[in-house]
Computed example of a mutant assay.
Amino acid sequence: MEHRRRLRDIGIKIGRFETGNLNSITDIEGVKVGHKTIIEDLHNGNSIRTGVTAILPHSDNLFKEKVIGSSYVINGFGKTTGTIQIEELGVIESPIMLTNTLSVPAVTEGTIRYLLDHNDDIGSVTGTVNVVVGECNDGFLNDIRGMHVRPKHAIEAIISASKGVVEGSVGAGTGMSCLGFKGGIGTSSRVITVDGTKYTLGVLVLSNYGKKEDILMPESNKRVYKSSEGVDLPDGSIMIIIGTDAPFNERQLQRISKRAAFGLSRTGSSAAHGSGDIVISFSTAHRIRHYPSKLRQTYSFFVEDGPIISDFFEMAVEAVEEAIWNSLCKATTIVGQKGNRRDEFPYHLFK
């Protein structure tokens, strides 16, 4: 089988900003990503094509040392957990977990169990924990009604997290479809130097939206399909995770998150009625202690009177678009539930 290539391996470069060394969200120091992929053909004829993906903003105790975070809803046909508290308190205190729609409860339980195992104080001498889980519907390729993702799979995804990110038909992306082809996990990054210091913005997506006729090719901005083939499916969804090591507060992060919609639209999406398009963002520049040692905490953030934040807006747009294309370029053909098939994206369309 042909080794699947990323967008830049095909010779296409998106935007004006340079990428990090890995062109990945893990170009941000301390960020790791893990997957648990579940593929099995059952005796009753059903097919399991699903999994879990975990994004760790840092490798220390996230409950004890939270990161500043935000979320933004492009279109709210989704079933995430934890975003209400992110918006209220502006912090993220758990791994950011991705899975299929009906497995959100199981992944939430598994992540809670992982955090309880590492924090004896949760729910006893201190409050409970806010777990963040996002989802997309993989029911076209996966026996989603079987609810085959269990809490242990979430724990396995967290434990497996590393700096190297596998893309495509893996983890939560195993059963996902995008723009009429096989979708899944994709990542990209951008770097910028401000006053002699290099900062990184990274994106990871779980792509599961659109039809072939929606596709807008990179560079040419042309549509290559006039109509789709096959069954009519729900509108689909996308989860977009944006991380940075730049010093932004939760309000600034939400402003950056809003620009993810532009990167999404560049691929052809119009955020259809039934599409759950959710952005979760974080900054690793500061850590918020669960048990502060002082009554006052002082942090510094970039000012918004100048080009810096506009540059980060543009970096987010570029990285989101490229991460989506990487999810398509790296995904392999999958045959799943009821013989349904999603083919890998054909590289010749880029010519």
Rank of each mutant, 00 (worst) to 15 (best):
H3M: 14
H3P: 09
R5V: 13
R8S: 12
K13H: 14
I14P: 03
R16V: 14
R16K: 15
E18R: 09
N23V: 00
G30R: 09
I38T: 11
N46G: 03
N46I: 01
I48S: 05
R49P: 02
A54E: 11
H58L: 01
H58P: 00
H58Q: 02
K66G: 01
G69R: 03
S71I: 00
K79P: 01
I86L: 15
L89Y: 07
L89A: 09
G90D: 12
V91Q: 08
I92Q: 01
E93K: 05
L102R: 08
S103A: 15
V104W: 03
P105L: 05
A106W: 09
V107F: 05
T108K: 06
I112L: 14
I112V: 15
D117A: 10
G123M: 10
T126K: 13
T126Y: 12
G127T: 04
E135K: 06
N137M: 11
F140P: 05
F140S: 00
L141Y: 09
H148K: 02
A154D: 04
A157C: 01
I159W: 08
K163V: 15
G164Y: 10
G168V: 06
S169Q: 07
S169R: 08
S177K: 13
F181Q: 00
S189Q: 12
I192D: 04
V194C: 04
G196K: 14
K198Y: 01
T200N: 13
V205F: 12
L206E: 14
N208P: 05
K211C: 04
D214P: 08
E219Q: 05
E219K: 11
S220H: 13
R223L: 04
R223S: 11
K226R: 08
E229M: 03
V231L: 13
S237M: 06
I241C: 06
I242R: 00
P247K: 11
N249R: 07
Q252C: 11
Q252G: 04
L253P: 07
Q254M: 13
I256S: 05
I256C: 07
S257R: 01
R259S: 13
A261L: 00
F262E: 13
L264F: 09
S265M: 15
T267V: 15
G268L: 01
A272R: 13
I278E: 00
I280A: 11
F282C: 06
A285C: 01
Y291F: 15
S293V: 14
S293G: 15
K294E: 15
T298D: 14
Y299P: 08
F301T: 07
V303T: 08
E304V: 03
D305C: 03
P307G: 03
P307K: 03
P307L: 00
I308F: 12
F313D: 14
C329P: 09
C329K: 05
I334D: 08
V335D: 11
G336Y: 13
K338E: 14
G339F: 10
D343P: 00
K351V: 05
